[in-house]
Design a binder for these strands. Structure first.
Lengths: 213, 213, 213, 213
DNA sequence: TATGAATGAGCGTTCATTCAT
DNA sequence: TATGAATGAACGCTCATTCAT
């Protein structure tokens, strides 16, 4: 059957991409040998070239498809009406931070950072498809949060990038320093959110103090 | 005279390191050819090997010496007694963010991220010499700020990494996305600090409410 | 039916050989990919290997079969009794020169020249089956021409190769220089024959040379 | 001294070209491995690339320089005034035929024929630098020979290529068939010239043919 | 029988490193 | 000490050949 062939071929392609993700994350673009990717994927060297024009194309498609996956998750994460922004951010950021810690998304961003000089197209792709959209979404949330009194100032409207900060910290810490001083990413995220979105205690305190005026 | 020789030799070594910084930042470790570094430094290829065991040693010493420079700056940035934490952080972070934007420190951290898989020693070095010290300093500041009422919660004591976040955001944004959407790093830093250290309005409000108790 | 199958198979084999002739002539042995031949022949890559042991066997059989075709033509070109040698030579050489110019035989000889180092068997085959026979025939003709007074000396008996010269000139000129200075092969053949077989009268000679311009 | 280095370098380059001539003649362009050339030249593989951009550049420079050598010989072969054309042709063609037989020029032309499809520039170079000039020279000689009565017709004016024929015959015969039937190239050249330039007397003709047997 | 996906040996080329000058 | 010509290990990529379908 045709579908059997096609299915096997798709599986092989996926295996190559998975192996490439592993290998590139571990060693970077230049230090990864195509042969290693092939071995990890359990295919012959030539098979790589049946699926990808060359090593660079493999890398680019790897980034695109992996980002695509995360992008899909992001798109799916539609906010429930009535959710407070703080909880919305936690709901979205929490799994990303987890996965960043575990390996994939974090390594991916590390990869892109590392190789951004050589692959400027990828940075543009990432900006357009992920970052710009995320920023728009954050802005919308922030405006709403301001009008509902959850946020006092317009900082997050002007610099929605700030919301990404804990992810970056986690990502970089995990990649570089976790073996010297492990970081509880989720706790750090909460601490961060406590700073940015003053917690209820403070709120109720303020509320109280307002009431006592 | 020996000293003349030694001076010339030291100058050569410095020229090589400067050239290496340029070259490695521009292309990454693997894609930088020793010959390129030599050419940039205005010396022969062999001269590199008179000063450094091999390419890897050149890279490691480059990181060490460049970090050393920044470390020295950090150490020099002793806080004036009586300064509020917010201002202290701004005083330290501001120039780092500037230089991150312009090139050196930012590229350096990008380099380390990129090559951290291959150079785990460097990460450890960086952690011990820079990060751990900075974290200790931030903790001390944060405790003081809490006791003085500038900070309400202990988030920055538990996760001093959070203070590094705006630097990371700037660094990554500058490296990847600046050409698509330029970022005013200093303004973003201030917005960030406005979030973490609630501005006077809020403080006076709180103070007032505390006083009215 | 078996014969239908056999006929189809023979057709396929012929198609492969035709495609191979095209491809090898165009690019030479090494630069021709088996896949190209298959595509040109309209068959799958594997089918080539059902008909020929390997690429080299395909090449050798190609040469053999194509030479065989020309050999057959040569054999068929039996001389009419009473024909003068000059006309006999023209009658045989003329079509070969044409075809040399157009492509097949010329390219074939170019191929053999080019690959003769790698395929010494082919040279022997060509010598025995084509050259030696042709030389014998030329010798016979030349002896007869001498006895009949058409030729003065015995040069063509001793060196019948000389008769092949205009073909070679045409072949090489066509392959290499035709785009810079096109050559009227037939006129050159006639001029050559005018030199080797002195024309009877000054008059006819002049007429011929005027016509060929 | 600089000259010592330069001399050694020039010697190496010459050795590489000589080795390349050998290797390419033996196996053709595609089947010759750069490593083989290096080994034959007694240098490392990388040294080839210090002297030539890539394999193709090596090939082209080989052709150019070797042709250049022969071109110089040709230019040097100025005709003595008062020489008969037949003797002039013999004087020039004889050594070329010898060297064709021995290997270099013949193999070179074989090479060019073989690879002309892939290196059209070379054919043009060869045409302009060698063939066109030779043809002009032959035309001049032929006109003079006609006016002096040595030649009857204008065939060699119209088709000076004909003069090259014996060289081609020798070349191809030597490359392909010499092991089956060795050819006395010089005798064939004389026979050919006897045909084209009818000897004065029957007597001398007979003497020559007797001697060449 | 016919196919073309899969394979891996083989080659062109680069570049870190050495060493004669 | 400083140089850069020379080296050869290493890697990306191709393509002849095989074999499961």
């Amino acid at each position: 059957m045709t579908s059997a062939r096609a299915a096997k071929s798709a599986k092989r392609r996926a295996a190559i991409l998975a192996a490439a993700l592993d290998a590139f994350c571990e060693k970077g673009f230049a230090a990864t040998r195509v042969e290693d990717v092939a071995a990890k994927a359990g295919v012959g060297k030539g098979t790589i070239y049946l699926n990808f024009k060359d090593k660079q194309a493999l890398f680019e498609e790897l980034i695109r498809s992996t980002l695509g996956t995360h992008l899909a998750k992001l798109e799916a994460a539609r906010l429930t009406r009535g959710l407070r922004m703080r909880d919305a951010v936690e709901a979205i950021a929490s799994p990303m931070i987890e996965s960043a810690g575990k390996g994939r998304l974090g390594d991916l961003i590390r990869l892109m950072l590392a190789e951004s000089g050589r692959f400027p197209d990828l940075a543009e792709f990432y900006y357009r498809e992920v970052v710009a959209r995320a920023m728009t979404a954050v802005r919308r949330l922030a405006r709403q949060a301001i009008s509902e009194g959850e946020l006092k100032g317009d900082e997050l409207v002007r610099f929605p990038q700030i919301i990404g900060a804990p992810m970056l910290v986690t990502l970089i810490w995990t990649a570089l320093f976790d073996k010297f001083a492990p970081l509880n990413s989720r706790a750090m995220l909460r601490a961060y959110l406590d700073l940015v979105f003053p917690p209820r205690r403070a709120l109720s305190q303020r509320r109280r103090s307002a009431a006592s005026r």
